[in-house]
Write a protein that binds this DNA or RNA. Structure first.
Length: 845
DNA sequence: AGCACGCCGACT
DNA sequence: GTCGGCGTGCTC
């Protein structure tokens, strides 16, 4: 039996010495929980969802999460004592524990793996965890008294800038085993903060500000100053601007806040050197302020309420009405229909009811634009959870949700792990996006499904939004289980773009192709640039070319770890593997025959960029793909340049298809549609349709009708017809028939098992045995394969795939997963397959 | 995931 | 004769 904390406490306070045990979740891929014993005197410190430190194995001390408290001593072994209690309040809520258990179950992984993915690493203490002085800490102004031990730590940390100590070092320094208490206390007092890896070291964002030196603040002193400035017009200008922006007289304190130096120096009519002279002469003083990475916009126009259009209002009302009878509603709105405003209105209503709100977005759609917009409406109640955030920022959001400071969180996939316990509304925007699915490592979860389950557990409503809903999602609305609201009109009179197909085969035969551009696309780009409008080009492959080949002997460089050719990256002058990261210098001559006739074959974004720069010198081309957005802010920079029209052509992969709104883009070109359609996967058509419609949606906003040119070798393919007419329904009808006929989701559930082994033969043998065991348990018709995937070797592991199709019923599913586990264990228990890795992916995408 | 224990090749 | 390779099994 497990006791809750509330129940355990009064007993522990009594005279009877109950012996408590806790089951903990270790942050490791272990199938079960481990039981530790609570020291008597610590009985009232036990908190479910709190962290404790335990010894695990001979050497390791780990922090882990208390999942349950009970009085049952383990029969088989002697439980070790808990070494330390870190938290006096849960860092993981009961609601989370329930959800995490469901995830581990559903996605066939361990609780430890879920916890590991869920907790920001600074919450996962280890002896390697480090502390650093909080950048905002000043010894004089910190209001909390420090103990002698705390003082010692602060001294050492202050000894040099950015000095860090590991837990082990802190332990040595204090010579006490109980140093976690000291660390915890210092964290609470905002003196230090924690991080896990050197890369997580906190570097605060600092803004340089200026203010009037305080002895000038009085009116008559200032007049004197003005008199002195009479012969220095530039400096006077600066001062005037400052006084204009900062109401020094009306509000005495406003001068203390000052204003951003950049606002003075970068102002077109002001001289930066005059600003510096004023600082040098002591009239202005410069100071640094640590700011949040998402600044609050307090300008008056920011507070301006927006009004929903009639269509938006109607959709909003319909969503609310449907929430009266259904828990899940799909908002199917064409691109540019203004779904975000509807979300904001709904969030506002949900907050009035007092619950929490989670707004999920795919990685690349979560831009500064949308965050700023939400900040304006929700201010400090909004938390942001982004994968490019540092660990400290994540902990801040985590704690903010726990404390109730953040009632709304906008975030990516992993935001479903945050400690919500009173959810009232979840919005999953672009719900069809495959980036909601984590592919590797475990837990291989789909944030949309997790969100739906969280909503279910916490009695919240879920709104799914998309211009191109997943077939599975739309099916649910057709079946009447989920509500459906449709928005067919674009916001602000913008018509849907005109889509033109251009036959690349015909043009190639006529020898009219210019590199990979048809004359139609090239002249249209030229025309748009002439009109000072912008262009987006979509090519779903990065690098310069997918491979190179020797013209004399046909040699093609392959990756030594994977069964793929190496892509040529011109800028880096390298050959790269897109699967394992292997790279090598581009050879000058063929290593097989010594010929210098090496030719690139095929094309990626880099070549498109290159060719276009040569063919249209007036184009200012920027490329956006994984290679150009790797650095932390490069993505924002590329977007900003394009927005401000410093660049006028954006060439990119998937990244350009999602969520970007640029008013001046009037042409979208899809360079090679065929590579998107021809994919060996049951979702290929769905993905292609979504991609075409989404990228087309980037063309034409704010009243301008856009144009889309799709280059294809086979314009007759059925899918184009539906894309051109933007007919989702027709696409859906076609697709759902196929799915029914061939037994794919939503009619069947798919679980994909992958067997990996360094030896190809062993991988095959293990897969054959696994298949046999599966067929034995689930029946022949449920198991497909084994089969080597198209790319049959990655990172030196040979792959074999088995696909399992199951009925959707939950009981069947649960039972089947047990059977699959059994089958996997049979294989793993075989000596010859000990080295094989077996991976289960539930609902793969 | 680590880490220790345990059986087979090139070194003082 | 040992040092050390990493295969295998266990951790409350």
């Amino acid at each position: 039996m497990s006791l809750s904390f509330d129940f355990a406490q009064p007993e522990a306070a009594g005279a009877d010495r109950v012996t408590l045990f806790v089951d903990v979740i270790l942050p490791l891929p272990l199938p079960k929980l481990y039981t530790y014993r609570v020291p008597y005197e610590m009985n009232d410190e036990v908190v479910i969802g709190g962290r404790v430190i335990v010894q695990f194995g001979a050497k390791k001390t780990l922090s882990c999460i208390v999942a349950a408290v009970h009085e049952t001593p383990p029969a088989q072994y002697q439980a070790k004592y808990i070494l330390e209690f870190i938290d006096d309040a849960p860092v993981v809520t009961q609601a989370q524990l329930k959800l995490f258990r469901w995830m581990a179950d559903y996605y066939m992984c361990t609780l430890g793996e879920v916890i590991n993915a869920a907790l920001p690493s600074a919450l996962k203490l280890s002896s390697e965890s480090r502390i650093q002085l909080h950048p905002a800490f000043e010894p004089e102004s910190n209001p909390y008294p420090l103990s002698e031990q705390e003082q010692r730590i602060v001294e050492v940390l202050s000894s040099e800038d950015g000095k860090a100590l590991t837990f082990t070092e802190v332990g040595d320094l204090l010579g006490s085993a109980n140093f976690h208490k000291v660390i915890k206390s210092l964290i609470q007092k905002d003196v230090i903060f924690l991080f896990e890896h050197l890369a997580d070291k906190y570097s605060p964002k600092v803004v340089k500000k200026v203010r009037l030196a305080h002895h000038f603040v009085e009116e008559n002193v200032l007049e004197e100053l003005f008199a002195k400035m009479a012969g220095k017009p530039k400096q006077l200008d600066v001062l005037m601007r400052y006084l204009q922006r900062v109401p020094v007289y009306q509000n005495v304190h406003s001068n203390h806040q000052g204003m951003e130096k950049a606002a003075l120096t970068s102002s077109p009519h002001l001289s930066p050197s005059a600003v510096n002279t004023l600082i040098k002469n002591g009239v202005l003083e410069q100071f640094d302020v640590i700011v949040s990475r998402f600044p609050m916009d307090d300008s008056p126009e920011a507070k301006m309420p927006f009004t929903l259009s009639e269509a938006q209002m109607a959709a909003h009302d319909e969503v609310l009405r449907l929430f009266g009878e259904k828990d899940i509603v799909l908002l199917h709105g064409v691109t540019g229909a203004g779904k975000t405003e509807i979300y904001i209105e709904l969030i506002r209503k949900a907050l009035e009811g007092g619950g929490q709100v989670l707004y999920l977005l795919p990685e690349i759609a979560l831009t500064a634009q949308i965050v700023t917009r939400l900040m304006r409406v929700f201010g400090t109640r909004l938390g942001v959870y982004h994968s490019k955030f540092s660990d400290n920022e994540r902990v801040e959001v985590w704690n903010g949700v726990l404390s109730g400071r953040f009632q709304v969180v906008v975030g990516v996939r992993s935001a479903v792990f945050l400690p919500f316990d009173n959810m009232s509304l979840i919005i999953v925007d672009e719900e069809h996006e495959s980036s909601y699915k984590q592919y590797d490592p475990a837990p291989r979860y789909n944030a949309r499904e997790v969100a739906l389950m969280m909503a279910n557990f916490q009695g919240a409503k879920t709104l799914l939004g998309s211009a191109t809903p997943a077939v599975e999602t739309y099916y649910q609305t057709r079946a009447g289980r989920w509500g459906l609201v449709t928005l067919t009109k674009r916001f602000g009179e913008a018509g849907l773009p005109e889509i033109e197909l251009v036959d690349t085969r015909k043009q190639r035969e006529a020898k009219k192709m210019l590199n990979h551009f048809t004359p139609e696309l090239l002249s249209e780009i030229e025309r748009k640039l002439g009109l000072k409008e912008q262009v987006i080009l979509f090519q779903n492959r990065r690098g310069y070319s997918p491979f190179i080949s020797c013209l004399d002997c046909g040699w093609i460089p392959k990756c030594k770890n994977c069964a793929v050719s190496l892509s040529y990256h011109k800028h880096a002058h390298e050959l790269r593997c897109h699967y394992c990261g292997f790279h090598d210098r581009m050879p000058v001559e063929c290593p097989a025959c010594g010929s210098r006739n090496l030719k690139t074959v095929g094309f990626g974004t880099e070549k498109i960029e290159d060719d276009l720069k040569i063919m249209l010198p007036q184009a200012n081309v920027q490329r956006m793909d994984l290679d150009t957005t790797r650095a932390k802010n490069s993505y924002q920079q590329i977007i900003a340049d394009f927005e401000q029209q410093t660049t006028n052509v954006l060439v990119g992969t998937q990244m350009v298809t999602k969520g970007l709104d640029f008013a001046n883009v009037s042409l979208v070109g899809i360079i090679n549609a065929d590579s998107i359609i021809h994919y060996p996967d049951f979702r290929a058509h769905e993905r292609a349709f979504q991609m075409f419609v989404q990228v087309s949606g980037r063309a034409g906003r704010k009243g301008k009708k856009g144009k889309v040119i799709i280059q294809t070798a086979d314009p007759a393919q059925v899918i184009f017809d539906k894309v051109i007419r933007n007919d989702y329904l027709e696409f859906y009808e076609y697709e759902i028939t196929q799915r029914r006929e061939y037994g794919f989701p939503p009619f069947m559930r798919v679980i994909r098992l992958t067997v990996k082994h360094v030896d190809q033969l062993v991988a095959e043998q293990a897969a054959i045995l696994l298949t046999q065991e599966l067929v034995f348990r689930l029946g022949r018709e449920a198991v497909l394969g084994p089969e080597a995937p198209y790319i049959f070797r990655i990172r030196n592991f040979y792959l074999q795939e088995i696909t399992i199709k199951l009925d959707r019923e939950h009981t069947v599913l649960k039972h089947a997963k047990g059977q699959i586990m059994e089958a996997m264990n049979v294989v793993k228990d075989q000596k010859e397959f000990k080295q094989a890795r077996l991976v289960a992916d539930v609902d793969p995408m």
